[in-house]
Amino acid sequence: MILYTTMPLETVLQGLEDLQPSYLEMEVSGARVVIEETSLGQGRIVRLLSTDPQDYLNPALQPGMTINFIPSGS
């Protein structure tokens, strides 16, 4: 990967080693998304996994949106 940016590389990549997010996959409004768990029962959309292009126009499925869910299992 080659970065072509005006930002110093050390600023861009700072904290890369500490990055250990926990990802889950779930269904939101009929589309599969990858979610980064931020706290119990809450997460942030990281990626949308859909083959329907129109899903990518749905603001509720945009990366960065907060999702509340009920953790399963007891």
Binding site: Y23, L24, E25, M26, E27, V28, S29, E37, L40, G41, A60, M65, T66, I67, N68, F69, I70, P71, S72, G73, S74
Partner: peptide, 30 residues
């Protein structure tokens, strides 16, 4: 009260973001 168990990524519970009118509420919250 049910104690929340470990999260199972394979079988997540239903999303609590409802369709339609509820998404307005979610929008208002976020």
């Amino acid at each position: 009260p049910q104690t929340p168990g470990p999260v199972q990524p394979q079988q997540p519970g239903p999303s609590s973001i409802p369709e339609g009118a509820g998404s307005n509420l979610a929008n208002l919250q976020q």
